[in-house]
Structures are given as structure tokens and as C-alpha cells.
Design a protein around this nucleic acid. Structure first.
Lengths: 194, 194
DNA sequence: CAACTGACCGAATTTGAATTTTGGTCATTA
DNA sequence: TAATGACCAAAATTCAAATTCGGTCAGTTG
């Protein structure tokens, strides 16, 4: 190791710190210390704390996209892919922790930057889901519909079942979540006419 | 008007004030002034501020139940009733304003009592929807399913469309909301097999 | 004398000035 | 010349004084 990639060191330290402490409680001094780097060095790569945070978010979003693209099999049914991707993303520890920590920070302190960060993540997810829905419509796998509204409802429903539900009840198992997402999205509540 | 019903005066003043200012920003002095009553008088009817608030919530919940029962026609399809009731409730100004104000207070100040109040309202709504779902299942109008989970998803979906959506987009029209609720709940996204 | 009142009390919240922390800079260093 | 950390202004945090507010009760009124 003749020369150390300081930019990478900073990014890794920042990712760790944001996921562990959230936006507000992460100080630049701390990031510098974790990265084993002088504070000034951070500012040779990133103009300020917000940009550094943005970069971490951007990385996390790219990573999520990568996972999604890895899992999607366009020869498989849309709903199989949908569930597989959401599943993998929830398993993916690092991004998940950042996401959870930011949610908590928004609830408890209401940091604007954490709020904005979550919005960006949500937007990225929605954009991705939207494209997949568009594709599914073109393949005549699902009915024509407003992709913006439907992707929004899908995400909200998923969050309702995986997160909101747990505030008052025992968490649902993966199988139950799968069952109810598919029930509502695919067949609806109407009984078979037969 | 030989004798004024002071209890009623207090209740009306409190309802107005809680809906207008939320829990925290409503002071007992203010309620007394609006009610044209000495502050002490309030305490002859209600042991403290929280109990007064509870009473208002209780009234609001009863009023909602009344509206729902008025609208429900059990000879009509379940989904027609569902939509009709949600629709009427949203029209009903007074309860709606209290609900919106409390939501805002929870978001912006995080008042515990406002939080609890919303929970109680949500519980009441969920209980009601649950019973209707149970009834619909027994009538074989919809598939057998976990009534707790399904009522929860219904409410969350409705809130997503009528409230969450508006944070980032133009509000959806009543017709659109109806369309998408019915789309997901009844027929699902799958195209007709024909 | 019974219902009602509002001045009063202590607890809780708010305010604001002093103090500390933190994001960001830049002269110095290796 | 890339890297550093002492340094600075601005933002955040303390903390005590001042204010507000829920709740009481002696006194008033009808």
C-alpha cells in the first residue's frame, strides 16, 4: 500500500458514521478521526457536510439499484420480481441501517437533511418501481394504470406492513407480508365468481 | 333560556379550541373564556385537561360512528359502503379538522396526548372497518382473510392517497382516489385473462 | 347554600444570554 | 503540493430567570 486512497477512507468513515449516528450527530471531526485523516482533507474531496451526505446517499441508492438489477429476471412474472427485490433490499444491512437511522432521526429530532435524504431515497425507489411497472404494462402483465400512483401505493403498502404495523402489533412474517401484498395487488378481495 | 347548560358550553368551546389550536396550544383559561365560564367551572365537570380532551375525542368518535351507520346500506355491496363512509367522514368538517390538527401537532411538536388521541381514533376506525369486513366475509362478499391486517391496509392506503400523496404532488380527485382504491382492493392489477 | 368564579400557587415551559460545539478555512508542514 | 489541525464565526446547547399554565379553593353571587 504505497499510497492510501484517502477519498475512499473518508467515504467509508462517513457511511459508517451516518448509519450509526444519523446526520446531525455525525461531526466532521469524528469522520476525520474514523477515517484517520485531517479534517481539512475531507474538504479537498467534498465541499461541505451536506455534499458528503449526498454522496453517501447516492452510493446507497446505486447499491440498491445494483441489487435490484441483479435480482430481476424479466422472464419471470412481475410480482415475483417485485417481491424478490423488496426482500433483498430489506436484507441488505448497510443501506437498511442508514435508512432506519434517518427515519428515527426525522421522528425524534426532525433534522431537515435527514428528511430530505429519505425523500431522495424514496424518489429513487419510486422511479425504479415506476419503470418496472411501465415495463410490466407494456408486456401486458398488468393492467394499464398511472405508474406514479400505483408505485406510490405499492411502496406505502409495503412500508405499512413492514414498519407501521409493528408500532402496535407483533411483526408479520415474511410469508404473511408476501401473502397480503400479493392478495391486494394481484387478485383483490373479491371471491372467485365460480 | 332560563338556565344555561354550562357543561355543554365547555364541551363546545373545547371542541372548537382543540380543532383550531391542537392539544398543547389549547389552554384551560382559553376554553373558559370561549365558553363564557369561570375556569373553576370546567373542573366541576372534568377532572383535568386530559379528561376533557378524552371526552372530545369520544364525542368525535361517536359522531363518526353515527355517520357511518347512517350511510351503510347492508343490501348494497361492501365496497360501495366502504367508499361512501370514508367519503362522508372526510366531508365532515369538524372531526376532520381535529384529526388534521392533531396530525400536524404530532409531526411538528410531538405532543404525547395528541399522539395518543390519534391512536384512539385510528383504533376506533379500525375496529369499525374490521367488523364490516367480518360481515362481508360472512356474506361471502369478499374472500376470507385476516380482518385486522386487511382493515389496517385499507386505512393506510386511504391515508396514503388522501394525505401522504399531497406532500409531494397535486392532490388526487375523489374520483381518482375511488378508482385506485377499488382497483387494488377489488380486482387487482392483473389483466383480465380473456 | 349550592353553583360559580377568578386570584392564586407550584410545576412546567419558554426565553435569552453565556458557553460550548461544530462546520468550514488557511497558514504551516512534511 | 497534498495534508494537516489550530483557528474562527456561526450554530447549538446550557441553565437560570421569567413566564405560562393546569389545577385549587376561599370567597362571591343569585
Amino acid at each position: 500500500m504505497p499510497e492510501i486512497d484517502r477519498r475512499k477512507q473518508v467515504l467509508e468513515a462517513a457511511a459508517k458514521s451516518f448509519a450509526l449516528f444519523g446526520y446531525k450527530a455525525t461531526t466532521m471531526d469524528q469522520v476525520a478521526k474514523i477515517a484517520n485523516v485531517g479534517k481539512g482533507t475531507i474538504y479537498t474531496f467534498f465541499t461541505n457536510k451536506e455534499e458528503l451526505f449526498d454522496e453517501i446517499l447516492h452510493e446507497a441508492i446505486l447499491e440498491m439499484k445494483k441489487i435490484a438489477d441483479r435480482d430481476i429476471r424479466h422472464e419471470q412474472p412481475f410480482f415475483t420480481n417485485l417481491y424478490q427485490v423488496l426482500d433483498s433490499l430489506l436484507e441488505f444491512r448497510e443501506q437498511h441501517e442508514l435508512f432506519v437511522k434517518l427515519s428515527q432521526e426525522v421522528r425524534e429530532v426532525g433534522t431537515r437533511q435527514a428528511q430530505d435524504g429519505l425523500c431522495k431515497i424514496e424518489k429513487a425507489i419510486l422511479g425504479y418501481v415506476e419503470r418496472e411497472i411501465q415495463h410490466a404494462i407494456e408486456q401486458k402483465e398488468i393492467k394499464p394504470c398511472d405508474t406514479k400512483v400505483v408505485s406510490f401505493m405499492m411502496l406505502k403498502m409495503y412500508i405499512a406492513l413492514t414498519s407501521d404495523w409493528n408500532r402496535q402489533h407483533e411483526p408479520l412474517s415474511k410469508e404473511q407480508i408476501k401473502e397480503y401484498v400479493l392478495l391486494l395487488l394481484t387478485t383483490g378481495l373479491l371471491p372467485k365468481p365460480e
